[in-house]
């Protein structure tokens, strides 16, 4: 969509320079593995201490992790299904809505370039 921007790292703020490249595919994969490693560690941790639980179901090892994983997926899939029903063009409520207006009217900097109204 947008033309690739030449990366002139000298223009970036210090923190950004430190972080630059996290979104390169190679690094993203690394982060993914680190996340898996964390998850495995947390799963193992469940065997190392005594759980204080309110309900029986909590006592199974890793139950929170599995629950989190499944629920997250479920939320996404239900939301995708919901989108099939409720999605409408952005100008659906025109002209009595702000959805397609130039968002810069909300008080953006004079230099802001985004927020173009939807044609």
């Amino acid at each position: 969509m947008t033309p690739p921007v030449s990366e002139d790292r000298k223009d970036m703020p210090l923190i950004a320079r430190l972080l630059s490249g996290v979104d390169k595919p190679r690094n993203v994969t690394r982060i993914f593995y680190v996340l898996i490693a964390f998850c495995v560690a947390l799963g193992l941790a469940d065997f190392l201490y005594h759980k204080h639980s309110y309900f029986e179901v909590e006592d199974y090892p890793l139950v929170y992790g599995i629950f989190g994983f499944v629920v997250y997926g479920a939320v996404i899939f239900i939301a995708k299904g919901l989108r099939l029903i409720v999605r409408r063009p952005e100008d659906y409520y025109e002209p009595l809505a702000t959805d397609t207006e130039d968002e810069r009217a909300a008080g953006s900097d004079a230099d802001a370039t985004g927020g173009r109204p939807n044609a």
């Binding site: 993914f32 996340l35 929170y64 989190g68 997250y72």
Partner: peptide, 19 residues
């Protein structure tokens, strides 16, 4: 310990699902 570990499990595994 329980609370911290379970909460981290919940959040990180959900994060994993996102990934």
């Amino acid at each position: 310990t329980t609370h911290v570990v379970t909460q981290l499990q919940l959040l990180l595994f959900a994060g994993l699902a996102f990934a």
